[in-house]
């Protein structure tokens, strides 16, 4: 199968230094934040890859890199076999990538009618000629996401959160993309509405052959949607592979702790052991394996040597010395 997106050794650093004068006065150095650190993965056409992790792990930065909103500091991203930076330069390629954002209240222009919001990518890329063709396409798109053509005359504030997210999806689909990056598409929605949107995303994928990169902190949502999964911690993917295999037998200690920590409907009254500690600052990450201060399996090697991803039996890549050495299961 052809890979739609191929991310190879991508790193993104941000300069978070204080202003020059302050640095001189306080005798301070430049500071860099490595939001994404040597990440590689590929997404086959028509499938869903999900990235999970806690706040600050770099998953949203990676989403922005994948649509070309950021340029990588190192490494390369290829879209349909072509370097993404070059693809972004051509409108014909650019229209094939689109994005759905988390907050449907902030991502729609409140002063525009829904028709114009959905038609904007069509007009920007000059995909259709005259007004009648555009109007026809917009009403088709609205129907596809479960809205009516009459809804096109309304403004965003006249819709509920779930309906607004449907508008965002219609807009994202209007340039007939192949690849959609969905950054926490249902985090702002209630569960019953979340189910509507997730079902819609699955239906559209089946009908249009879409490829998704799904960013989420909700493991249950990821379990429902993903074919492949990457677990991120402090800018690195610590475990990645087929989602089924990872959910069945999580190998990396962080993945296990994360799965263990999710409150579950099937565990009423469970008393939990709990994970200690917080995610360290990405400006000064711990040496060696960045997870070692919180890891129950950490030893001397983990404190100094950074683990590289190693393939395990079921096609899962795990970056962990303990797993590699067979320590602690």
């Amino acid at each position: 199968m052809v890979d739609v997106l191929d991310v190879r050794g991508v790193t993104k650093t941000f300069d978070v230094s204080r202003p020059l004068l302050v640095r001189i006065l306080a005798n301070d150095r430049r500071k860099y934040l490595r939001a994404v650190d040597d990440v590689s993965f590929a997404i086959p056409a028509g499938t869903t890859m999900a990235l999970v992790g806690e706040s600050g792990c770099g998953k949203s930065t990676l989403a922005r890199l994948a649509v070309g909103l950021h340029a990588p500091s190192a490494g390369e991203i290829r879209f349909e076999g072509q370097a993404l930076s070059a693809a972004r330069a051509q409108p014909a390629m650019r229209r094939r990538i689109n994005m759905i954002f988390q907050d449907p209240y902030a991502s729609l222009n409140p002063r525009w009618r829904v028709d114009d919001i959905v038609a904007e990518p069509i007009r920007t890329f000059r995909l259709l000629g005259k007004g009648a063709a555009v109007a026809e396409r917009v009403s088709f798109l609205l129907g596809q996401v479960g809205l009516t053509a009459a809804d096109g005359q309304k403004y965003p504030h006249q819709f509920s959160g779930g309906q607004r997210q449907r508008i965002s999806i219609a807009r994202a689909l209007s340039s007939a993309p192949q690849f959609l990056v969905c950054d926490e598409p249902t985090s702002a929605l209630d569960v019953s509405v979340q189910a509507q949107i997730l079902n819609l995303m699955k239906d559209l994928q089946a009908r249009l052959g879409l490829t998704y990169l799904l960013i989420s902190h909700n493991l249950a949502v990821v379990r429902h949607m993903a074919d492949r999964l990457g677990v991120m911690y402090l800018g690195r993917i610590v475990e990645q592979g087929p989602a089924e295999a990872i959910f069945a037998t999580p190998r990396h200690p962080y993945t296990r702790l994360l799965l263990e920590a999710v409150p579950s409907l099937d565990a009423t009254g469970r008393s939990r052991s709990g994970i200690g500690g917080d995610v360290p600052s990405p400006i000064a990450p711990p040496p060696g394996c960045t997870f070692h201060p919180r890891c129950p399996l950490a030893d001397q090697r983990c404190r100094v040597e950074r683990p590289e991803p190693v393939a395990t039996a079921n096609g899962v890549l795990v970056a962990c010395h303990a797993v590699e050495e067979g320590r602690g299961g």
Binding site: V191, A195, L198, N199, L219, L259
Partner: peptide, 23 residues
């Protein structure tokens, strides 16, 4: 019942989530 069924589960994967239509 609808609310419970619409919650995706970590334990088992279903093809479609039950959804309560409307708002």
């Amino acid at each position: 019942a609808g609310l419970m069924a619409s919650i995706p589960s970590l334990e088992h994967r279903v093809a479609r989530l039950a959804q309560i239509d409307g708002a």
